[in-house]
């Protein structure tokens, strides 16, 4: 039982392939099999949000999804956020507004904010707080993050 399976997917625009057990979590596959350690593991039960990535354009937790389920999917991780060697406006804004300290929640926070701004390009502060409440940050008190998302929204509109 439990023979290894082949997983083929596109990550950050690049086609990748790996073999793993069916039980392997998508986040572990990204980190261990594809060497993309920018996505972090924080709780493995879908609460902290550090592992959030975009799957076919929508934010989802990669710690509560199997790698084999992502076969054929298009993923975006923090490593793929830059364009043409330049920081994404969200990345810029996080730096400008001190939206990170230890950096551990940052990948999930950025990917969640990206999805938030796609579904709601002009969020109020309350909507930003509600949107990023999907990710736990223990360092910043979220203040700089909220400011950063506000600023990025203005720039991306």
């Amino acid at each position: 039982m439990a023979d290894a399976v082949t997983v083929r997917l596109t990550v950050n625009g690049v086609e990748r392939e790996g073999r793993c057990e069916p039980r392997k979590l998508l986040v572990d596959f990204l980190r261990e099999d594809l060497g993309l350690t920018g996505t972090h593991v924080g709780c493995e039960h879908g609460i902290c949000g550090a592992c959030t990535i975009l799957i076919d354009g929508e934010a989802a937790r990669s710690c509560i999804m199997l790698a084999v389920q992502a076969d054929g999917a298009e993923l975006l991780t923090i490593e793929g956020l830059m364009r043409d060697g330049k920081l994404h406006p969200l990345q810029e804004a996080f730096r400008e507004h001190h939206g990170l300290q230890c950096g551990f929640c940052t990948p999930g926070m950025l990917m969640t904010a990206l999805d938030l701004l796609r579904t709601n390009p002009s969020p109020t502060e309350a909507e930003i707080r509600e949107g990023i409440s999907a990710v736990l940050c223990r360092c910043t008190g979220y203040h700089g993050i909220v400011r950063a998302v506000e600023a990025a929204a203005r720039k991306m509109r």
């Binding site: 593991v41 991780t77 490593e79 920081l87 990345q91 996080f94 001190h98 990170l100 950096g103």
Partner: peptide
């Protein structure tokens, strides 16, 4: 603005894991 941010914002931090 923090000099360490660039690596954290691009997924290039190096934690023990």
């Amino acid at each position: 603005r923090r000099v360490e941010d660039a690596r954290f914002l691009t997924g290039q931090g190096r934690y023990v894991a």
